[in-house]
Design a protein around this nucleic acid. Structure first.
Length: 313
RNA sequence: GGCAGGUUGCCCGAGUGGCCAAAGGGAGCGGUCUGUAAAACCGUCGGCAACGCCUACGUAGGUUCGAACCCUACACCUGCCA
């Protein structure tokens, strides 16, 4: 078999931009050309089993027979991390390529996408050390810890705001583990070869309307019951899952802190804000080619992949 | 019908004579980011020709050098009595 080029197609975009549907459509178009493609998820919350309605996880029907990777791979009690995800996603991409299948990386978690595609090495972690630092944080507060960080590494401290306890703790952890810590992300340089990056752009007002409709639909589809069920499975015990957009608001409702209507509105507002943040992140990546979301997106992306595959063969 | 309380900026909510364009929270807007990232943190947040001016604390008037804060009337909402 002649060696052919297998590009990675990355489809980025805000939540509710339609990237999932486009990714599936692209895979199906390629399939009809005799090019196999499968989807690798790059949405942080889709990894959790049982978190379906609130994450707008594509149903089997919506997946249209296209295999999806890194969806439903862990329980809500576990804390997903970028570092884990990086390893898993790169593994999936390599495995697909080895099989001659085009990986379509679809998702809206910008840090995850960055970590998968670009050269970023995450220093390790140590549970005991982390626990100690967090206990200390409770004692002395974030400002004191930040001061200590500043004494150990002025540079690292400069990149972290004093109020940000989370990042301060991690910086101290890494310094203790490795001796130094870098508080700035590396630039844009692919660690995975041959990547085509596209972004779907949706006008703000259109996206906002979609988000609102989508959240209402989640409620209608039984989102609150989904959360109730997950609570029994330990949703509150995890470190990450319960903070997911919508889930946190429903939990607040179940705890009596919000009315159900307030929880719904807060979810809409939170999702809207999240979409802004996503955009801010993706916009900075100069390699992304932006497409106005619309009918022809799948065609455009499929032909970009096709061209690349044929060129390489 | 009577008595008591309330009406504050986009929303909620402090303020009860000057230090009030008015605490705080939310929303909105903008930003930061190397193992929680759908997270965490930060800034901004009445208007303008902007070290000043204008508009603003239910409406209209009054007291005062000075009022969101005091008085009067009116409107609407709320609790108790009938």
């Amino acid at each position: 078999m002649a060696p052919v080029t297998i590009p990675v197609l990355a489809i980025n975009g805000q939540t509710a931009s339609g990237k999932t549907a486009v990714a599936v459509a692209v895979a199906q178009l390629l399939e009809s050309d005799g090019i196999r493609a499968e989807i690798v998820n790059a949405d942080s919350m889709l990894v959790y089993r049982g978190m379906d309605i609130g994450t707008a996880k594509p149903t089997l029907e919506e997946r249209g027979g296209v295999p999806h990777h890194l969806i439903d791979i862990m329980d809500v009690t576990r804390g997903a991390t970028v570092a884990d995800f990086q390893v898993l996603a790169r593994g999936a991409i390599a495995e697909l390529r080895a099989r001659g299948v085009v990986p379509i990386l679809a998702g809206g978690s910008a840090l995850y996408v960055h970590a998968i595609l670009d050269e970023i090495d995450f220093p390790g972690t140590d549970a005991a050390l982390r626990a100690r630092l967090e206990a200390e944080l409770d004692q002395v507060g974030p400002a004191a810890l930040h001061e200590r960080l500043a004494a150990l590494s002025p540079l690292a401290a400069a990149g972290i705001l004093p109020g940000n306890a989370r990042r301060t703790v991690r910086a101290l952890e890494v310094i203790e583990l490795t001796g130094s810590y870098t508080s700035t992300l590396p630039g844009w340089s692919h660690a995975v070869g041959d990547v085509l990056q596209f972004g779907l752009e949706v006008p703000r007002d259109v996206l906002d309307a979609r988000i609102e409709a989508r959240v209402h639909q989640m409620w209608a589809d039984g989102f609150v019951d989904e959360v109730r069920g997950l609570v029994d499975l330990g949703l509150r015990e995890g470190r990450t899952a319960w903070r997911a957009l919508g889930y946190r608001q429903v939990l607040a409702f179940l705890d009596g802190e919000l009315t159900q209507g307030e929880a719904l509105q807060a979810t809409i507002a939170g999702t809207r804000r999240f979409s802004r943040k996503q955009m801010g992140w993706f916009r900075r990546d100069p390699r992304i080619q932006w497409l106005v979301a619309g009918e022809l997106n799948a065609e455009t992306l499929a032909s970009a992949v096709r061209d690349r595959v044929l060129l390489g063969s």
